[in-house]
Design a protein around this nucleic acid. Sequence first.
DNA 1: ATTCTTGCAAATGATTTGCATGTAA
DNA 2: TTACATGCAAATCATTTGCAAGAAT
Lengths: 148, 148
Amino acid sequence: MKVKQSSKKHMTHGCLSQAEIIERLETSGVNATAQRIAIGKYVLSEAEHPTADDVKLWADKNFPKMSLATVYNTLNILVEAKLLKEFKFPHTGKVVYDSNITKHHHFYDEDTGIVSDIPLDQVEVLTKLKRTYNITDIEVVIRGSRRR
Amino acid sequence: MKVKQSSKKHMTHGCLSQAEIIERLETSGVNATAQRIAIGKYVLSEAEHPTADDVKLWADKNFPKMSLATVYNTLNILVEAKLLKEFKFPHTGKVVYDSNITKHHHFYDEDTGIVSDIPLDQVEVLTKLKRTYNITDIEVVIRGSRRR
DNA sequence: ATTCTTGCAAATGATTTGCATGTAA
DNA sequence: TTACATGCAAATCATTTGCAAGAAT
């Protein structure tokens, strides 16, 4: 069965069934084990920018005996399979995972510590760098707060 | 004696005398000990985006018996005194120190791993974010390579 | 049977901390 | 003498690795 993986838009949260998770894993060449399905469901459709620790905490409540090594192992596999992106932000030592694998920027709320996505078209970056700079990517982190 | 600290531009590398380092330390309320002068001279006028480890390596060659704790301790003090800025880049787990304390962006050379500064005026960022976003800072990291 | 996965514990790398000693106003 | 600095080793935190045991094909 042929799956048009890249044409499928990033899912909004909470809308992926277990069957869909399994399909996404296998389409990406990842063997769908119980642990991977569980973590996949959490990070791909429920969590927002979780850390490995967030995933472990969630697993401790929702999965019988999952080791921390398996959490890291699985997250790394999902990143390699391009189902997940990892980020290191200036404000934290921890890696944060993002199920939004399309290019986008980030907003860091200095009051709450919450990281949120900013769609590419919301930020325009113009550079005056010389042609000797061969640019492959531009990452923008905007910090501030959100008025309630 | 009154020193116009903020009107003094960021020094290009290698041009700060020991006396100038001592003055900058004391002006910022940092007690100028031998270790702090040595590290200060290195990170403020010689090194380019060094890590704590780079500083330790340098100290081992140029200062008798400086402990790693003192290296970290001193770097943290220089950051608190606003003589140094610290950055965590997406590509590394290590903190990188920058003696350019004016606002600026960064270029990460994917071939060499070298981080370089990009002056503010070389990058223009336009956002279409709603007014509920109260922006305090925008950080841009451009990745790529430089043609030789 | 062979290959892949998991769990556990130990290892690693970066940074911090506790504490006793040293130094300076 | 009182406060601050330093060096050392141990502690901590995030992450990785080695390896033995388990599951799947």
